[in-house]
Amino acid sequence: MTRYFRFLVALALVVSAGTVFAQGRLQAIKDRGELRCGVNANLPGFGVPDASGAYTGFDIDFCKAIAAAVFGDASKVVYRPLTAGERPTALQSGEIDVLIRNTTRTSIRETDWGANFAPTTYYDGQGFMVRKDSGINSLRDFEGRSICVQSGTTTETNLGTTLAGLGVQFTPVIFETAPVLIAAYDDGQCDGWTTDGSGLVSYQTQLRVPSDHKILPVIISKEPLGPAVLHGDDQWYDVVSWTIYALFDAEEYGVTQANVDDMLFNAADPQVKRLLGAPGSESYVQAFGLRADAFYQAIKAVGNYGEIFDRNLGSGSVFGLERGINAQYYDGGLIYGFPFN
């Protein structure tokens, strides 16, 4: 009943305004009072519930950042854990507002799924892990050996086609879930295993003696991971994209979770002022349909990109991952925040 009532009110408003436009997703989210975020609930470092049941991880922090930007409150997120196969349906049916589930940006997904990808938050690639003393140093050394791989993913087909192209014959050992695969690899059921580099790193800590293993200096695919929204709502796409850019920029300009309050009033750099919507520069953020302090709230909630990385994957986590290619552009990486201007 309330739904109909609300609909009638909305209709009356629209008609009385004399303009007819579809209600955007941003407005829908604001009305609903919560952001629906499709995530992975089973990938350590990227998204996994902790002992209190709260989701934590790299992808989760971006959900929080977007929620903070929209509502000024990072807790107003509803997480929808998705399996790899559920992603397109969840996105297309509108069940989720944004998909942040270590999803590779590919042409098929932009066209078939109808997904618009926001900036890449993690540059990944499919790699291989082997024991240091296994004598395997290149893909050719997999001849006659076995490789563990997770089923139903592009990883599986990449592996098949790449090694077939090299003329290498190997035995695939297929697993439904990553944890089982890791245990099997650690127990020597296969000579190597393959998945995205981030996954390799995140699971290396789970091995009995992590230092006995190495990641081959070979990448057989490009896997840029980033948030995706549904085609056809440019305003919402801009909000998601620029929240990410804001986090990139914050790192570049030295805005952190700790000093953001100070920066808001005392920053001299006009870039920082526009980014934070400081007094006098509110319009840069308000133009997105957000409140002036949207990105300030996002940074306040989760920190800048570098902090998110360090906390979940980098030196501040059990994974101790190097920034590598995910460093800022001025450090030789690919992370490049666009200017607020």
Binding site: A41, P44, V48, T177, P179, T205, R208, S317, V318
Partner: peptide, 13 residues
């Protein structure tokens, strides 16, 4: 499954 992949679980050899 979830409990056995939490970071704390990963630290147990």
């Amino acid at each position: 499954d979830i409990v056995s992949v939490q970071p704390e679980a990963l630290l147990v050899t």
